[in-house]
Design a binder for these strands. Structure first.
Length: 494
RNA sequence: GGCCCUAUCGUCUAGUGGUCUAGGACAUCACAUUCUCAAUGUGGUAACCCGGGUUCGAGUCCCGGUAGGGUCACCA
């Protein structure tokens, strides 16, 4: 059986949430490992929340993450249009069919009246049942002709059993008394989510509906609609939602990025994000011996081959551990060749960097690859690479020499700098030709002169060059700098 | 509150009645290596929510409790 899956985001402004990417990833894997299709459908049935440009943002983010879709806006396909606001007539048609069959009805309650009844129902632990539930069609039509505002509601049966099988949670049972007479068509003629998903999923031949666990409680409504329309059920699968590690609910911007595009801006690689997301709620079927490490690095292709719904966790919430994400990103950065990483970095830098001061240096630097090779093992994100690159281009100002790393040699720093200056001036103009042995011997002898530990003299050099007590390996770094630049940093005050 | 779902180290998880004195990864700690920071290597701390059953035997099955979560919109 080939699966057809879909992601159905709403263009409400802030773009795709990282949770959307996780759902999308599973959708994608399920479709691809059965040679099926992955579809994007825009659910813009709430005119009030619609934001201009949001659709474009969503599609761009999907593309940035490399989860190419087979059908959807722009790409199109056999079930076009893939935007719900362009399908209004379809929803109306089915709503009418439901009314004629007696499975839905016109309701003329004002919003205020509805609210009142809802409050009442809730006090009694009951679901809303509109007084228009049994109004005859003729009467209703008369009221409509008089211009009375109305909605269409689902006519939920009394005390009926609604049973379905969730691919992750298993067999689930609800009583229809727990389902309210959901509005299907709003006053403005737009469908609600509940009507639109069911119709579109059916018409677009969606076989598997993957969505967050928070949708579980509204699934009975959908089941009822499928039943009333005489349609076969798709497979439902409710995935754990993502939560902040330190909170007991949902992701918060307090701890970092929340939206999919933000992670990219912050210098995470899409493959790393995807890999991290794969393992949030799903575990690999690869067996291993007791004590043997588990494979955790998976390409999208490997994931596609391995993925199945029966290895998804049943829990409703899973922690989004930002530390682990960082680890994945480090692993991916480390694994890239310096050449590839340079291209990725430059591309990211062009698209996301706001600070223009380094722009011309970086974009014109013929030795960028060498610099990146030096820092790639010590960078967690592309932002880290950028900040670690800084000293190559900008001479540090206002250095704080009063740091604990230099405590032991504090009183000799100026003399040491002078000696370091002298040492480096004896070398050739081409730093590339400096020999590591000679250089290191020179440094160590300066250290000996002051009876300082070798680490201390290296630290003086480091702080002078970089401005901070941390850096990539010094010798290799110096080889990527100009001699005059190096000397000017060693001998700034004379 | 009604209804529904869930429950293994701090976190993500492996585990489908005996091989569990519960395995891995992240985080954390220690040691090694080192010109710093990293990276790397080795080792350590750390969990079956509680109570009843069922069974020769339960992390694994059943029931109850507890805890957490979801949902109860003309939002998705």
């Amino acid at each position: 059986m080939t699966a057809r899956t879909r992601i159905a985001p709403s263009p409400t402004g802030l773009g795709l949430h990282i949770g959307h990417i996780r759902t999308m990833l599973y959708d994608y894997a399920l479709a691809k490992n059965t040679n099926g299709q992955f579809i994007v459908r825009i659910e813009d049935t709430d005119q009030n929340r619609y934001v201009e440009g949001a659709v474009e943002n969503i599609l761009k983010t999907i593309k940035d993450y490399g989860l190419n879709y087979d059908e959807g806006p722009i790409v199109e396909g056999p079930y076009t249009p893939y935007v719900q606001s362009q399908r209004l007539e379809i929803y109306k048609k089915y709503a009418l069919e439901l009314i004629q069959k007696g499975y839905a009805y016109y309701c003329f309650l004002t919003p205020e009246e509805t609210e009142e009844l809802q409050k009442q129902a809730r006090l009694e632990n009951k679901k809303l049942r509109s007084p228009y539930r049994n109004t005859s069609l003729e009467e209703a039509n008369t009221l409509i002709e008089q211009g009375k505002e109305h909605v269409v509601r689902l006519k939920v049966p009394e005390d009926g059993e609604i049973i379905f099988e969730d691919a992750i949670l298993g067999r689930l049972k609800f009583n229809s008394n727990e389902v309210d007479d959901q509005i299907l068509l709003k006053t403005d003629g737009f469908p609600t989510y509940h009507l639109a998903v069911v119709i579109d999923d059916y018409l677009m031949k969606i076989t598997h509906v993957l969505r967050g666990n928070d949708w579980l409680s509204s699934t009975p409504k959908h089941i009822l609609l499928y039943r009333y329309l005489g349609w076969e059920l798709p497979v439902f699968a409710h995935l754990p939602n993502l939560k902040e590690k330190n909170e007991n609910r949902k992701l918060s911007k307090r701890y970092g990025a929340v939206f999919a595009s933000q992670f990219l801006e912050q210098g995470y690689l899409p493959e790393a994000l995807l890999n991290f997301l794969m393992l949030l709620g799903w575990s690999s079927p690869i067996e291993r011996k007791h004590g043997e490490s588990e494979k955790e690095i998976y390409s999208l292709q490997e994931f596609v081959e391995l993925f199945s719904l029966d290895r998804v966790q049943k829990t409703a919430l899973v922690s989004f551990d930002r530390d682990k994400l960082l680890w994945f990103n480090k692993e991916y950065i480390k694994a890239k060749s310096a050449d590839d990483l340079k291209d990725i970095f430059v591309n990211w830098f062009k698209n996301h960097n706001q600070d223009k001061t380094l722009e011309e240096f970086i974009l014109q630097d013929s030795q960028l690859e060498g610099k990146i090779a030096l820092i790639k093992e010590r960078a967690g994100t592309l932002v880290d690479i950028l900040s670690q690159l800084n000293f190559f281009y900008i001479k540090p100002e206002g250095i704080d020499w009063n740091i604990k790393q230099l405590g032991a040699v504090n009183e000799h720093i100026d003399e040491m700098r002078k000696d370091l200056y002298d040492l480096h001036s004896t070398f050739n103009a081409d730093t590339k030709s400096w020999s590591h042995e000679e250089w290191e011997k020179g440094i160590r002898s300066i250290g000996d002169k002051y009876n300082a530990k070798h680490g201390d003299i290296f630290m003086v050099l480091r702080v002078a060059i970089v401005g901070m007590p941390f850096s990539p390996p010094l010798f290799e770094s110096l080889q990527l700098m100009n001699k005059e630049d190096i000397l000017s940093r060693l001998y700034p005050n004379f």
